[in-house]
Design a protein around this nucleic acid. Structure first.
Lengths: 181, 181
DNA sequence: CCCCTATGTTACCGGTCGGTAACATTTTAG
DNA sequence: CTAAAATGTTACCGACCGGTAACATAGGGG
């Protein structure tokens, strides 16, 4: 869905259905034959993003099977890579969350469930990696990964990405050293 | 400005000028005699938030004069306290940022300058606190503080606040131990 | 008391937006 | 080739929104 770029760049509320249709190389009428409302469009877009992220987690899991610390490190590296080519406008999901004040909006539910799944996954990884307080470390990771987006707008995405990777690496190494020694 | 609550709760774009006027216990006309446009209203609101935050930094500085680590710790504690009484809807500034896609919007400029000032301040504090890599540590702090808002929506604001405080405390203590030993 | 200023009221304008109806056109399948 | 299904086109509706004009009402200082 190329229309998603519009949502991300101009904000959900800032882009009209007509523009969405144009970006999707169709027209409003056909759009409304597939989606009942703009909200459904939004929700489907969010669902797509979430699905993509979950897919990435599967990739991560496949590439580092039985290596939780490797997964965590790769996760930070991928995030840093994405940050590098983002520049200015923040996270798509984060912005969408901000633009949908209604807590009962279906798109919000999708996001929340995804967030929860992701968080549980990170906790699980931290536990498997042998962190003494998995919930604590997971929160730390999540906070940084989330915060990097907004923080990068003033520090520069490259630097924030690098530091992100460094922090995660350092935490992982410290943990491994502690377990070994 | 009580109208600011509306901006925060319903989103900038989701609240009309009429509603703003009502919240300010006046009417649209009088509003437009003081503010040229809705964008100016937004900008002034953002300016208010920023001013309040800067004021808090002054407080922090006054309360912990010559004690940079104390400032950092108190900063995290105050943020945690605010998180605790926030529940659901994220950071006002963060959301505003997401809702103003135009990078040349005056409100965005205000936010960006504030972010930059804050970041420099944190770097300065980290340097004064004797952190070996101040830029690195400052980024770490900032990332966590920013990320806590969005992260708290799935973990719970209380827990995220506690962990935030713990992390900062631990970092500070580690640093002090390293300098002493 | 009166004038001047600040505030309130109402109605309105132009524009945009989400969504729909009716009809024309193209594509696909049998 | 033809019938049916999908897609495109145009025009429109009602609602809302940012912003303004004109006028009414207060209210405070001389």
């Amino acid at each position: 869905m190329a229309a998603g770029d519009l949502f991300h760049k101009q904000g959900i509320r800032g882009v009209g259905v007509e523009a969405i249709a144009e970006a999707a190389q169709t027209n409003k009428m056909t759009l409304y034959r597939y989606f009942a409302s703009k909200d459904e469009l939004i929700t489907e877009w969010v669902r797509g993003i979430v699905a993509h992220k979950e897919e990435e987690w599967k990739d991560l899991d496949a590439k580092h099977r039985g290596d939780p610390t490797g997964q965590l490190q790769d996760w930070s590296r991928r995030t840093a890579a994405k940050l590098r080519e983002m520049e200015e406008r923040g996270s798509a999901l984060g912005n969408a969350f901000a633009e949908l004040p209604d807590p009962n909006h279906p798109a919000r539910r999708v996001m929340k469930e995804h967030k929860l799944r992701t968080h549980k996954r990170v906790v699980r990884l931290c536990k498997a990696a042998g962190f003494p307080d998995p919930a604590f470390s997971a929160n730390l990771f999540s906070m940084m990964l989330e915060g990097a987006h907004s923080c990068g707008t003033c520090v520069g995405m490259r630097q924030i990405g690098e530091h992100l990777v460094q922090v995660v690496d350092r935490m992982v190494e410290n943990n491994q050293r502690q377990r070994a020694g």
